[in-house]
Design a protein around this nucleic acid. Structure first.
Lengths: 337, 337
DNA sequence: CTGAAAGCGCTAACAG
DNA sequence: CTGTTAGCGCTTTCAG
């Protein structure tokens, strides 16, 4: 339908000016007289001129695009983090592109390469579960592109990190249970080899120890991070001769699994068994009874990560020591414990 | 840290070739001999070469970027639509940028302008609630950028549309209730002046009529689309002398409200009153009992919209008649009806 | 104050 | 088969 997109030359032609003059006028360069500027601006508007930021990026050898790689945006936590990132990016005139890895390393690597080709200003990533090497992140850095990890980090890559206080959050959750007088507190742990799995488990263990309670191996059951893992884990716990009276689940989906298994056993929550989750997924407040959980403040995570990345982009030359920022968690008391 | 990013010239210098030769070799151009290609490829790998797609875009006067504008990604439906879009885009070597309007027209318009500046290949949008004019979408089209609306469309802009079959979905939901033998089926309707409110209500009415059942005014209670509306509507229905034995809610949040009101009245679902929702929000399967609802197949909506947009991009010259595609809904039978 | 020239990295048409 | 030349739209010296 439309012919060609309008360029500085088109507006220069109309005004019988040189196109560089127009370019300067558009950027409000002091060289140009106010009258000329006004004329240029008015013609630009009339012609529906939109600066070609591709050309600008090529010239400047820099873009103003931030990239985010997350396992999936169909996830409360990541969706909220992204909102936080966009909030900061928008305010600083950066735009954001979002990529999904679908928990697949290969896809993650492909995205990294596309982002390098697109010369993004920096990238924020929460690592896919299947990722076992930091190589693609290192090639990103080799290209001089700043990198910040959030939530799911890789320890073998030296980069900025914004993490949630998994350890502290877990402690607070378990201390809440202890305060309520529960005596046999179990933990449905995640994968042992993930940082969140380990840190939350440490928090659980330390909370018990600090209160002089025994840490029994049979009270810790490892699994995954999904609902079925919660079902399986709870089933295991219920088969024990000495059942727990409270359970701290590594995250909300696992807690949901625990709920359904508990109901299967006709157990009342929290009377027969109390439950605390981690993550504050939206559905948690709709459970029956509403789940007591720990919020990770995803919006704050996003804002902190974006700010850190922007800082790195600005000091691109000097090598910014890879900072670590920890976002505090908060216990949300509802009715399951 | 890293010096400059490597270009075709760098690899040409190493090989004492002209850089255009390298460029051709990289793109597997038939001109170039296999040996040369191999050498080029190996040096490219060694030097960690990544083609600069900004330069390529500038040259080709085209990008391979699809843009999506949604009110918010923190919403099951939109998040799933985006996944569908990415699925198609990735498969066709397009990348995707996601923008959030936050239901704010101004932000929507800003995004449109940025996208024009970035010369995206096409844009997909689900319109913000506060948007009252189609102007910014028209300027997009004036720039020759193809546009496809999904779910929330604007009738005053001529563009492709992918919408959900609200009418059909409602009919199927109500027919399910009829099939189960319910005799007095009520409808918690949304706002009368919205398209989804009207269409779903029409589906309800027609389903009853077609099965020779009476449509009683007192069985239709208008309200809004939120949980409190469901509570209020259900309370109204329960106060009737002749109570319904089943309720079709305009959407899942309203159904959730109906649940809590029903429980307040000590009614058992579905024994005392059956319930069907619409939308298949994630939380619906976690309700007690799990809610029978109608899915809008967001993933399919996304795929259809992306495919339509890609079609328009390919036939950019000819003016593609603005197609309309309706995505079928599917009943998800769970335990509330 | 305005204009001219060069170049960002790449591709495409044309010569050798 | 390889090299030359030109140009995408913009910014940035440097001259006038």
């Amino acid at each position: 339908m439309s012919s060609r997109q309008v360029t500085v030359k088109d507006i220069a032609g109309r005004l019988r000016l040189h196109y560089t003059t127009v370019s300067k006028a558009l950027r409000d360069h002091p060289d140009i007289s106010p009258v000329t500027k006004a004329r240029v601006l008015s013609v630009a508007e009339e012609l529906d001129y939109h600066p070609n930021s591709i050309a600008k990026s090529l010239k400047k050898q820099a873009t103003s695009t931030l990239a985010v790689i997350v396992p999936s945006i169909r996830n409360d936590f990541f969706a909220a983090v992204i909102s936080g990132i966009e909030e900061i990016a928008c305010g600083r005139e950066f735009n954001t592109v979002v990529c999904q890895s679908n928990e697949d390393t290969a896809r993650e690597a492909i995205h990294v390469h596309t982002l390098i080709s697109n010369r993004v200003a920096g990238v924020l990533v929460s690592v896919a579960q299947t990722t076992t090497s930091g190589d693609h992140f290192r090639t990103l850095q080799k290209q001089g592109i700043p990198l910040v990890f959030f939530d799911r980090v890789r320890d073998d890559v030296e980069a900025g990190r914004v993490v949630v206080d998994d350890y502290g959050g877990a402690r607070v959750a378990v201390e809440h249970l202890i305060g309520l007088g529960y005596q046999r507190i179990a933990h449905l742990a995640g994968h042992e080899h993930t940082s969140i799995g380990r840190d939350r488990c440490r928090g659980y263990v330390d909370a018990l120890r600090q209160h002089g309670m025994a840490v029994e191996q049979e009270m810790i059951v490892y699994g995954g991070f999904e609902e079925p893992d919660g079902i399986a884990g709870m089933r295991h716990l219920m088969a024990l001769s000495r059942r727990p009276d409270a359970v701290f689940a590594v995250n909300d989906p696992v807690a949901v699994g625990a709920y359904s298994e508990a109901k299967q056993h006709r157990l009342r929550i929290p009377r027969d068994v109390a439950l605390v989750g981690f993550g504050d997924n939206t559905l948690s407040s709709y459970l029956d009874p509403p789940l007591t959980t720990v919020t990770q403040s995803p919006y704050r995570v996003g804002k902190a990560a974006a700010r850190m990345l922007l800082r790195q982009i600005e000091h691109a030359d000097g090598n910014v020591a890879s900072e670590v920022e920890m976002i505090e968690t908060t216990l949300i008391e509802r009715e399951s414990a």
